[in-house]
Nucleic acid binder design. Structure first.
Lengths: 160, 160
DNA sequence: AGGCTATAGTTGTTTGTACAAACAAATACC
DNA sequence: GGTATTTGTTTGTACAAACAACTATAGCCT
C-alpha cells in the first residue's frame, strides 16, 4: 500500500469515528433531554437559537440555516413547537413573504429549565473522558473541520 | 461564572462542534456517494461491514450493533439491500432464530467500485484541513469518546 | 420432560425528513 | 407601469426511523 492510500484509509477511519461518536452521543443525550424537558434534540436546538437571540425571534430562513434544517424541515418543526405553545409565528412588516419564529413565554420558561439540565447532563456524560487539555485540543480540531465544511458547503460564505 | 460552569459550557460547545461537523460532512458525502454508487450512507455502511468480514457474512444482530442501527432499522435496511440484489439472507444452522446477512457477488462488485471512490472523496474533501499529526490526534481523541460512549450505552460490553 | 425467561429477528404503526411543486410577495428590467 | 424572475415559506408525497408488540427458538431450572 502506498503512503497516500494509508493516509486516505486513516481519514476514512477518523470520519468513521466522528460518525460513531456523534450518533452514540445523540442516543445518550436525546432520551435524557426528552425525559427532562419533553423536547427532541431538534426542538431543543431550534429553541436554543431563539433563546439566545436578543428579541427571542428569528426569521424562518435564518433559523433554518443556523440549525442545519432544510426550509421545509424547519416549517414542520416550528409547526410542532407552535402546537405545543412554545413558539409563535409573527409576520414580518418589512417583507410580507417573511415570517418570524418567536419564542413564547412558555417556551422561555421551558428553556430556562431545559438548558441547564442539558448542560449538566453533557457534563456528566463526558466527565473524566478527556483531560482539560485534550478537550481544548479536540474543540480546536473540530472547529477547523466545521469551518472547512462550511466553506465547502457554501463557497464564499463567512465563517462564524 | 464558576470554573465548573465554564468547563461545562466548553463541553457543550465541543459537543455542538461534533454535531455540526458530522452533519456537515454527512451532507457533503452522501450526495457524492449516491452519485458514484447509488448507495445511501447507511447502505454503504452496512455493505462495508460485510465486505470487511472474512466470509462476507454477519449475523443480523452483529451487523446492527456495528452500524448503530436498531434491530428494526437493520431489518428494513437489509430488506432494501436484498431487493436490490446486493445482500441475501441465510439462516443460521446453529441457531434457528438467527439469520446471516451475506454479501452477494453483485454486492461485492458494487463495493469494489464504491469503496475506493468514497475513500478518495473523503480524502479530497479533508485534504489540507489538518496536518498529519493533528489527524492522528483527532483520531485518538475521538476513539476515547467513542469507547466511552459504548461503555455508557452497553455497560459491561467490550470495546473493539 | 415441562414450563419460565431470555434472545433473534420481524412487523405494525406512528412520526419525522427530504425533495419538489405550489404559492405569494418582492425585485429587476424594459 | 407591467411583465419576468427570484426569494421566502408552505404543502403534497414518498420514504426512512424508532418504539413497541409479536413470533419463534434457545437455554435454564427443577
Amino acid at each position: 500500500m502506498t503512503a497516500e492510500q494509508a493516509r486516505a484509509d486513516e481519514r476514512l477511519t477518523t470520519v468513521g469515528l466522528l460518525f460513531e461518536s456523534t450518533t452514540g452521543l445523540g442516543r445518550i443525550f436525546e432520551p435524557q433531554l426528552s425525559a427532562d424537558s419533553g423536547l427532541s434534540r431538534q426542538s431543543f436546538d431550534v429553541l436554543v437559537r431563539l433563546a439566545r437571540t436578543p428579541e427571542h425571534r428569528l426569521r424562518m430562513s435564518e433559523l433554518a440555516s443556523q440549525t442545519s434544517l432544510t426550509p421545509s424541515g424547519l416549517t414542520r418543526s416550528v409547526d410542532r413547537l407552535e402546537e405545543s405553545g412554545m413558539v409563535s409565528r409573527e409576520s414580518c412588516p418589512d417583507d410580507r413573504r417573511g415570517a418570524f419564529a418567536v419564542l413564547s413565554e412558555r417556551g422561555r420558561v421551558v428553556m430556562d429549565d431545559a438548558i441547564p439540565l442539558h448542560i449538566a447532563h453533557i457534563d456528566e456524560v463526558l466527565d473524566g473522558v478527556l483531560t482539560p487539555s485534550e478537550e481544548r485540543t479536540l474543540s480546536s480540531l473540530l472547529r477547523k473541520i466545521r469551518d472547512h465544511v462550511h466553506t465547502v458547503e457554501q463557497p464564499g460564505g463567512p465563517g462564524d
